[in-house]
């Protein structure tokens, strides 16, 4: 019950964060010198063309009214129209978002599945060689710029070893399109196309590794320090005294209470993960939001840019809500008290 209330409170705060985000973004996009319509059309457009576009997109109305329209649109999940193509921003983002989502989910999976065990290993052999190896790996993966790692992986796997494709999401002219969820790995299973699944995986692997490295390093570091913290607790000593075997103690009694800090950090660092996704997508020509975002930015299509930032923000907020839920599942104290600490 307390937990439900906790989640509800988090949802409300998240909505507030999104409203705040929309304001910030709107102010940046509208309150700057220059006229969005003029910017989008460029210096060669005539005065009439500009006025026309302004009228069409509501840019001639008072700023508060514009924001009202923007927010009303958002509430319906409508991000407005591109200043350039006049296509709904929604359609453009929908087409690209699934690819980004697939990449980010794969990244989180890799980061957690590798990072947490590495942290456990390091904590278990604290100050011995496995710990030192993990610490070095964690530091290097945290400080290698994603785009650089992406390039290195491309050189290594694509040009030197010739084992994995280096650009795109599926082979060119491949007769499969993810139509259900938009995620290749899932849709190929639904469509019973193991060949598409394998191809999708081959294409996904390098970008996901490049993007996952930094987060994985953080996961490993934080899991390690959290495990070390827990390992000195009385209850671990007590389970030792009662003869609970070592592996149960480490993998059950120590691991579960250690989970909250890495989960929390995963949520907080998610924003920078989205940022890195932009560069990684660019390097691997991954058909995600980044290419769209960067194109619209260079074309000064402010409505589209606002859409991209808003979607990133919603993505961040949703991931953090899921993490709140997970934290509650892992730690009964959060469930019972209805708060984190």
């Amino acid at each position: 019950m307390e937990f439900l209330r906790f989640l509800l409170r988090r949802v409300l705060w998240s909505l507030l964060v999104l409203v705040g985000l929309s304001m910030v973004i709107f102010i940046i996009a509208r309150a700057v010198p220059g006229d969005p319509a003029r910017m989008a059309l460029g210096p060669t457009a005539t005065q009439e063309q500009v006025a026309d576009l302004q009228k069409k997109l509501g840019l001639d109305r008072p700023i508060v009214q514009q924001y009202g329209l923007f927010i009303a649109g958002l509430a319906h999940g409508d991000l407005g129209r591109s200043l350039l193509t006049e296509r709904p921003v929604n359609d453009d983002i929908r087409d690209t978002f699934a690819a980004t989502l697939e990449l980010v989910l794969a990244t989180i999976f890799i980061a957690v599945v590798l990072g947490v065990p590495l942290g456990v290993v390091a904590a278990y052999w604290k100050d011995r060689w496995p710990d030192n190896v993990v610490r070095i790996v964690a530091i290097f993966s945290a400080v290698t710029p994603s785009f650089f790692l992406a390039l290195l992986l491309q050189i290594l796997a694509g040009y030197v070893l010739h084992i994995l494709p280096t650009t795109g999401r599926l082979p060119p002219n491949f007769d499969f399109a993810p139509t259900h969820t938009g995620l290749v790995l899932i849709d190929s299973l639904i469509a019973l196309r193991p060949d598409a699944f394998l191809e999708g995986l081959r294409y996904l692997l390098l970008p996901a590794i490049a993007l996952a490295a930094a987060t994985m390093g953080q996961m490993a570091r934080i899991t390690r320090s959290s495990m070390i913290d827990v390992s000195s607790q009385d209850y671990i000593e007590a389970s030792r005294a009662f003869g609970v075997p070592e592996w149960v103690r480490v993998c059950k009694y120590m691991l579960r209470p250690s989970f909250v800090p890495p989960l929390t950090i995963l949520g907080l660092e998610f924003a920078s993960l989205i940022g890195n996704a932009f560069v990684v997508e660019l390097v691997f020509a991954w058909p995600g939001m980044a290419a769209y975002g960067i194109r619209t930015i260079l074309q000064k299509d402010l409505n589209a840019v606002m859409g991209v930032v808003m979607v990133s923000g919603v993505f961040f907020v949703l991931v953090n809500l899921v993490i709140d839920l997970l934290v509650g599942l892992v730690d009964p104290r959060v469930r019972i008290r209805g708060s984190r600490q």
């Binding site: 700057v32 924003a271 890195n276 932009f278 930015i297 840019v305 606002m306 990133s312």
Partner: peptide, 23 residues
């Protein structure tokens, strides 16, 4: 603190991109 929550939700890189678009 709510203000920091809002700011945390924006990827710095994306924000820089957006600002670059405007300016």
């Amino acid at each position: 603190m709510r203000f920091t929550d809002i700011a945390l939700a924006i990827p710095p890189l994306v924000m820089a991109l957006a600002v670059a678009a405007v300016l």
